[in-house]
């Protein structure tokens, strides 16, 4: 019986139309040749996460676009923003993306020391970016230009603050990986995590380009 059903299975698979009968023929109902699950779904999942994060930023950008001229008789971007400081901030973040790329090249060569070194540099650039952003926020609030001053400033703090929170958690993730890499080595899990963090980091860079252009440059120059 077992041997028979085995042959029937192969025949049905090889020639499904061999026997034309009035009764509906039984097709293959069970996949007996399954070879486990593909492990490659994390990347797709992470792309979907990044796209959903894009939607968050799209909403924040749209909010800012609507409210960016509602000053409530308060300060405008040209009064508040210090473009050279923001240029420094932007270059820190852009350089951190380059150094992350260099770290990934070292991952390909399986050189642990240099990987950690470039990841560390990336983290320091990230911390520098955050430091300047916190200094800017503190300065704005001290000047009485906090998020409660006008709709423009509410939208500004929501958009830029959300980006800053992302960078913060990116750094937490980076530091965690810098502990896990030497501990467990360049195992597939760690390389996958490095890929995901890289996508996240470059994604934050791309978002910042939008913030820099729409909030700071256009805010100050098109005022």
């Amino acid at each position: 019986m077992t041997a028979h059903s085995g042959t029937a299975f192969t025949e049905a698979k090889a020639a499904p139309h061999a026997q034309a009968t009035a009764e509906p023929e039984a097709p293959v109902f069970y996949d007996t040749e399954e070879h486990g699950h593909a492990e490659g779904s994390t990347m797709l999942g992470f792309w979907i996460y990044l796209m959903s994060d894009s939607l968050i930023f799209a909403v924040l950008f749209a909010t800012y676009g609507v409210l960016s001229r509602n000053y409530a008789a308060g300060p405008s971007p040209a009064d508040l923003f210090d473009l050279p400081l923001i240029a420094l901030n932007t270059s820190l973040l852009l350089f951190s993306s380059i150094t992350y790329g260099v770290a990934m090249l070292e991952v390909e060569k399986r050189r642990m020391g240099l990987t950690l070194f470039w990841l560390g540099i990336t983290g320091l650039f990230g911390l520098g970016f955050l430091g300047i952003e916190l200094y800017e926020f503190h300065h704005l609030i001290e000047e009485g230009a906090g998020p409660d001053r006008s709709a423009f400033l509410s939208a500004f703090f929501a958009l830029v603050g959300t980006h800053g929170l992302h960078v913060t958690f990116g750094i937490v993730w980076l530091v965690t990986l810098m502990f896990q890499l030497p501990k467990y080595g360049f195992i597939p899990e760690n390389r996958r995590r490095l890929m995901c963090l890289g996508m996240f980091w470059h994604f934050l860079d791309a978002i910042w380009i939008g913030v820099f252009t729409f909030v700071y440059l256009m805010g100050v120059l098109l005022a």
């Binding site: 085995g6 509906p24 039984a26 097709p27 109902f29 069970y30 007996t32």
Partner: peptide, 13 residues
């Protein structure tokens, strides 16, 4: 569909 068209559960492999 499986019951109607007479599936047989594999009992090995």
């Amino acid at each position: 569909d499986m019951k109607r068209r007479g599936h047989s559960v594999p009992d090995k492999g």
